[in-house]
Design a protein around this nucleic acid. Structure first.
Lengths: 92, 92, 92, 92
DNA sequence: AACGCATAAGTAAGAC
DNA sequence: GTCTTACTTATGCGTT
């Protein structure tokens, strides 16, 4: 082995190694996904702007979205608990 | 008109109005996009986890991503700043 | 004990308890500090206004402050990152 | 004049000018104030941590602070309106 | 299980 | 007056 000590906990990362190639691939995958995510964030902003242009209050709109998200989360939690209890009671 | 005064600045939003329908559409569009965004965030998390499983250090990985993002941003910013200073100094 | 069960994980907070007094003290300390912070934010705004009145471009000024802050942060960070990567590469 | 055109809207800022000295002073004042502000932010964080250590819930604590700030703002607003009306009525 | 960090949301100021 | 941009706050995530 040319580039790392035997005790290395991490892959050896020099320019020509397999590890460097792997690293590059991981980074590119992440950056690609981050780009898409940023695109969606931008789309969301556009929808808020459009809604505002139609006369809706952006702040109120955001509040509604927030509340509905809470509701969904609580509903899902409730179902999860129900399922848990059903399992505990042997009701599959 | 049954649900709002003539001078209303915002769309009338009662359950049966056109405005309520529009509101519903906006909310659903936003929620749809938010879902996709959350999905991507989850994908990104998975990639980090996979990289970690391969032996890469997650923290270092995030640092690299951050630095590369900075580099890109700074490159784009450099010209903007130059122009800003030229304006500030009256060099048009 | 009049105001809480023995197993209470949180301080009992009714109007006459020791906990209520503690809570009040914490809140007052925080509010005091927040006030001072707001005062400083206001002072900073004033300095920008004064500089602007002297003929300096506020936007450019803010940019300079931002860049100098970055420089300081980056200098401090540089060592941290170095150490981070060394750890990531198993160089302890 | 050696360093700027006659039409310059901004003070001439070369290394030896009075303007450069002024600029330096403004920047140092701002940076000083920013430092103090950051110090207070840090103090506030410490108080929250201490409160948490005593058993208080940080999130609830922040909520209380937020609500009280709103109350104060509304009270101040009410007084401002009162004063406005008194002035409008010639009650000084 | 808790602590600190990092991202993300919301708010407020400033520019055009 | 609108619009963007910057700051502040808040929540969630990873780590210890």
């Amino acid at each position: 082995m040319t580039t790392s000590t035997a005790a290395s906990q991490a892959p050896a990362v020099d320019a020509s190694s397999v590890a460097a190639d792997q690293l590059k691939v991981f980074i590119e995958r992440i950056e690609r996904l981050e780009e898409e995510k940023a695109g969606l964030a931008s789309d969301i902003k556009d929808v808020y702007a459009e809604a505002k242009g139609t006369g809706f209050d952006g702040k109120a709109l955001r509040e509604i979205i927030r509340l509905r998200k809470q509701d969904h989360a609580e509903r899902q939690e409730a179902e999860a608990i129900l399922e848990l209890y059903m399992q505990a009671l042997g009701m599959v």
